[in-house]
């Protein structure tokens, strides 16, 4: 099918960009690795996890999820940049499947995540991260992380095509992503938060993803006020539901936006 061929070519373009500008790859891995080291050594000593293996076991799933969540910003700013340079116009004037450019972009960004997650995993291992869920579950955890990043990448498509300026895109993406990753169980247990925030954190897709990964990596989740609620009991199912909801809403919206860009 020619649509698949088109998508493959666009994805290859994404990857070629990485080889031409190695800085992108370096910076997108340095930042999360820096987070691993900072959190591990700055907070690691003061957060009592009650888990064997210490804070780093809890931390790694949190940082993995945070990192893939930033796919949203990456996709958005990449597309905004293409739009500004008129490249989107050129692609849209080609006799190719109209969704190829955005689908290829989301896939390329997800492939980048594979590399980033691998580097982070190694960094984590070096500082003591030892997942104990069994090979299959750990692999499943990484697969979910990639899917979560992929779903958010579609939100990024809409943000990138809607904004007028690449800097606005960066700011919007960070304003959306930062609170979501911090108002969650990613870096510290929610048990110490005010009750209202605990409920927010409980339903926060970042938390359900983190909790799901922790389960798959062989850890026990801790909950405060929200123990026993549906997302706390079923983080994996809740996360899958979230991904489906995000895709169902944002794939058609983003594609529509792409076809009409600049109308």
């Amino acid at each position: 099918m020619s649509a698949i061929g088109d998508i493959t070519i666009i994805t290859q373009r994404q990857l070629r960009l990485l080889t031409r500008v190695p800085e992108v790859l370096i910076f997108s891995t340095i930042q999360p690795v820096m987070f691993v080291l900072l959190f591990r050594y700055v907070f690691g000593g003061s957060i009592d996890t009650g888990q064997p293996g210490g804070y780093v076991q809890l931390l790694m799933p949190g940082i993995f999820v945070q990192t893939v969540a930033f796919t949203l910003a990456g996709t958005a700013s990449g597309l905004a940049e293409d739009m500004k340079k008129g490249l989107i116009d050129r692609f849209r004037s080609l006799p190719i499947s109209q969704s190829a450019l955005v689908v290829g972009r989301t896939l390329g960004d997800s492939l980048l995540n594979i590399v980033v997650l691998a580097v982070m995993g190694i960094a984590g291992y070096v500082v003591g991260w030892r997942p104990s869920g069994g090979l299959l579950n750990v692999a499943l955890g990484f697969l979910f992380l990639l899917l979560f990043g992929y779903a958010l990448s579609w939100v990024g498509v809409l943000v990138g095509l809607s904004a007028s300026d690449a800097r606005v895109v960066q700011n919007v993406s960070f304003i959306v992503t930062f609170p979501l990753t911090f108002l969650s169980n990613a870096f510290a247990p929610t048990t110490g938060m005010p009750r209202a925030l605990q409920y927010f954190a409980e339903w926060n897709p970042v938390s359900t993803m983190v909790a799901a990964c922790r389960e798959l990596f062989g850890l026990e989740n801790q909950f405060g006020a929200t123990a026993g609620s549906f997302p706390s009991e079923n983080p994996l199912i809740t996360s899958i539901l979230y991904m489906v909801i995000i895709m169902v809403i944002f794939v058609p919206l983003s594609l529509r936006r792409y076809k009409r860009s600049a109308d």
């Binding site: 666009i10 373009r13 006799p95 190829a100």
Partner: peptide, 27 residues
Amino acid sequence: GLSGQYAAVDEILTGYDNLLMFGQLYH
């Protein structure tokens, strides 16, 4: 064929890569 007001080629790729990519996209 369209050549817009601002040269719409991929800045980061080489000239050859650009033409190759567009050629492939033209199947």
